[in-house]
């Protein structure tokens, strides 16, 4: 910085370390809880230091689940979550790329009408149209299916806007050069536009994967079949069971597992994550 004041710098470091400690503390508690056995987890005060049951608990949660909460193996729920997250992220990106391409590069009737229709989705979060959307999905026979879990969530105004923004920054001459080279619209889209947008696609994928993985209200509404549960909603089932049986060591292990994939994605693809977050605005 500008002036050399070591005390302020030290203070800044200390504040940040304290901040990180506050933010990370819940994770520590969770990790500790996930590494003890059931008996230790009923004795007050709870331990603050990890025990030796971590892998035993991991094994039990992954393959057996919690008996009091239906005994659904967490491994299976994680697999469901993975499928749903990938379907949502991929679906959103594909349909948004296509519609942004149409809106930016074609002049056709109702173009702006379509644009505003997509814009409207921004104002209709699932929370405000829970019941009727549930009815639609039920009528279409999509309850308890991967399609029902993903398709209703893949319309995306933000992704469409982002790609529109990206396409608008592609110089006009790219299209002209492609036309002189004899490339038709789809060829131009595939050969030029897609490669030019690939970092944006990757950035968006990171954000949308997290979005998809963390879906809660929607899967809660439309899945009744335990084999379709996602891990995030599975946690809620376990919390309810915690009222009767105390299996906090397994619940916390599941919590850890539920946040692991998105957190790993954020940490390993941090640059893409930051780009995606700042470019989609939300």
């Amino acid at each position: 910085m500008i002036e050399h004041r070591p005390i302020i710098t030290v203070l800044a470091h200390l504040t940040l370390i304290l901040g990180i400690a506050i933010v990370a503390f819940p994770i520590w508690v969770t990790f500790v809880a996930a590494s003890h056995d059931a008996v230790r987890m009923t004795q007050v005060p709870l331990p603050m230091w990890p025990g030796d049951q971590f892998f035993v608990n991991l094994n039990k949660a992954m393959f057996e689940g919690i008996a009091g909460a239906g005994g659904i193996p967490v491994g299976m729920m994680m697999l469901n979550s993975l499928v749903v997250a990938l379907m949502i992220a991929t679906g959103k990106i594909v349909i948004s790329l296509l519609s942004a391409f149409a809106i930016v590069y074609f002049k056709f009737p109702f173009r702006m009408g379509f644009f505003w229709m997509i814009f409207l989705t921004l104002m209709l979060p699932v929370e405000v149209r829970i019941l009727p959307t549930f009815e639609v999905v039920a009528n279409l026979g999509m309850l308890n299916s991967f399609w029902g879990l993903s398709i209703p969530l893949i319309a995306s105004a933000t992704a469409t806007f982002m790609f529109r923004q990206v396409f608008l920054t592609v110089p006009d001459e790219m299209l002209e050069a492609a036309r002189v080279d004899g490339a038709g619209p789809m060829r131009f889209f595939w050969d030029i536009l897609l490669p030019l947008s690939r970092t944006n696609i990757a950035a968006l994928f990171v954000i949308l994967f997290i979005y998809g993985w963390n879906q809660y209200l929607w899967p809660l509404l439309i899945t009744t079949d335990a084999s379709m549960f996602t891990v995030v909603m599975g946690i809620k089932q376990m919390l309810e069971s915690a009222e009767q049986t105390t299996e906090w060591h397994l619940i916390m292990m599941t919590t850890l597992l539920a946040m692991l994939p998105p957190v790993v994605v954020v940490l390993t693809m941090q640059r893409m994550f930051v780009k995606g977050l700042t470019e989609t605005d939300k």
Binding site: W213, N214, Y216, V232, K236, M259, V265, V266
Partner: peptide
Amino acid sequence: PYAVAPVV
């Protein structure tokens, strides 16, 4: 923590 689901 951004990546942690609200319910989690």
